[in-house]
């Protein structure tokens, strides 16, 4: 479902003397439907970089990345837009939303974009928000005013509201209390059970041990480091 082959990435900092930072080389991985794979490696090793290349907001300089048959590394913007709408979900660490849009709408939005009727989309959003213990009194408010943990849960609800066949998770259990952490792990297990291919970054070792079928250490993809 998610395939990376021999991927390389460099950044050219034009405004800092044209410095070229080669940050990744020969990165390859595969995630099959129903599988959960963790990216590991020290901070700065390139876990997020690889994940962003799969999401498509970082360009791939060499090699190929394919998600559900779409060649992300060379696709037209509209193909990536379509892929993100139907197939590829992403729970980032930061919630980026329009101010003043109510939480219920923020969570329902991926379904509305797919043409799901409003009542159905909001019912599904409400169900997830309840499971993630966001009180109903908050649903009509914008999440921009919420605490970090609450925003994190709104972001997770938004990422799980549509059953994406492929899902990228960046530290989904960070900054959550025990009960919510358990809920998120259940959501991930349910996504695996329905055949979702999941690639995640988990600093939470307990979560990683329980959820992940394999680990991929990105340290081996650093240029000049033997795998």
């Amino acid at each position: 479902m998610i395939i990376a082959e021999n991927v390389a990435k460099e950044f050219t900092l034009h405004n800092q003397g044209g410095t070229v930072l080669r940050v990744m080389e020969g990165a390859s991985l595969k995630v099959a439907p129903g599988e959960c794979v963790a990216l590991t490696g020290a901070s700065g090793a390139g876990k997020s970089t690889l994940m962003r290349m799969i999401w498509g907001n970082y360009r791939t300089d060499a090699g190929h990345i394919r998600v559900a048959g779409t060649e992300v590394s060379s696709a037209e913007p509209r193909q990536i837009i379509a892929l993100r709408r139907t197939t590829l979900g992403y729970v980032s660490q930061f919630l980026r939303v329009l101010p003043r849009v109510p939480t219920l709408r923020v969570v329902a939005e991926p379904l509305l974009a797919l043409g799901t009727p409003e009542a159905e989309a909001e019912a599904r959003a409400a169900e997830l928000l309840s499971r993630l213990r966001i009180g109903e009194s908050l649903w009509g408010l914008s999440p921009t005013t919420f605490s970090g943990g609450e925003q994190q849960r709104v972001n997770i609800a938004r990422g799980f509201v549509h059953p994406y066949p492929a899902l990228l998770l960046d530290e989904p259990t960070a900054s959550l209390d025990a009960a919510n952490r358990e809920t998120v792990m259940c959501l991930i297990e349910e996504a695996k059970a329905r055949g979702g291919a999941i690639l995640g970054i988990f600093h939470d070792e307990g979560a990683r041990a329980r959820l992940c079928d394999r680990l991929v250490d990105v340290t081996g993809f650093r240029p000049g480091v033997a795998a």
């Binding site: 034009h14 907001n57 970082y58 360009r59």
Partner: peptide, 13 residues
């Protein structure tokens, strides 16, 4: 390009 790609990984100086 894609909006978040141009903003998150700009190529041109």
């Amino acid at each position: 390009g894609l909006t978040d790609q141009v903003l998150d990984d700009p190529q041109h100086a």
